[in-house]
């Protein structure tokens, strides 16, 4: 089984953690896996993209354009930026919440959420768009947006493993004091796309 997942967001949103959890879960069911992430402190607040490739054997960790099966978008504009990675029929799970970069506050560039939302609706075949940041806040912190997205992904019958398996890996990776909050975020993400 092969599955290529792109995770797009803003540095500091927990992009790396999300891709590591997805990858470790794949490794534990015996699939060869590769990930690519943008690492480093100085990526804070910058556009970042992680890539997870399950079952890709001899290929690089970088997904070619037009080949990704799934896009997890942690931030609206970053989701749009990553659309070129998607193949026809790919599933997009996207956070409708926005993070305005300093460049917008300073007037060097602009951010038009309605235009971006319209583009996503028109140009993607299977879109789940909801305010994941609000759900994360509901769980206790905006920082759990990544877990909301993983929860949503776990409902859609795309992963080569069960939601329980993904949740178990997540629980193992997250420090105990943050576990409850992240589990709640995961559960809220599931509900957001109609899961239990």
């Amino acid at each position: 089984m092969r599955l290529d997942i792109v995770i797009a967001g803003v540095g500091g949103q927990g992009n790396v953690l999300a891709s590591r959890i997805l990858a470790r879960a794949a490794m534990e069911v015996g699939l060869p896996v590769r990930t690519s992430e943008v690492i480093g402190m100085a990526q804070r607040e910058g556009a970042v993209m992680s890539q997870v490739r399950m079952g890709a054997g001899d290929y690089s960790a970088l997904i070619p354009n037009g080949q990704a099966d799934v896009l997890l978008g942690l931030e609206l504009a970053e989701t749009v930026r990553a659309v070129t990675k998607l193949k026809k029929g790919a599933v997009v799970i996207a956070n409708s919440a926005t993070i305005y970069p300093v460049s917008v506050s300073l007037g060097f560039s602009s951010y038009h959420p309605e235009q971006l939302t319209a583009f996503l609706k028109e140009r993607t075949d299977s879109l789940y768009l909801f305010d994941a940041t609000s759900l994360a806040n509901q769980a206790g912190t905006y920082k759990a947006t990544n877990m909301v997205m993983l929860g949503a992904l776990s409902v859609l019958d795309l992963l080569p493993y069960s939601a329980d398996h993904l949740r178990a890996v997540m629980e193992d990776v997250i420090p105990p004091r943050l576990r409850e909050m992240n589990l709640t975020a995961f559960a809220l993400g599931r509900q957001a796309v109609g899961g239990a």
């Binding site: 910058g46 659309v83 951010y111 140009r123």
Partner: peptide, 15 residues
């Protein structure tokens, strides 16, 4: 060719 809507530039910044 995919004509994307204009996107904000988002370089890394001091935290």
């Amino acid at each position: 060719a995919m004509s994307q809507p204009p996107l904000p530039v988002r370089p890394p910044v001091l935290c």
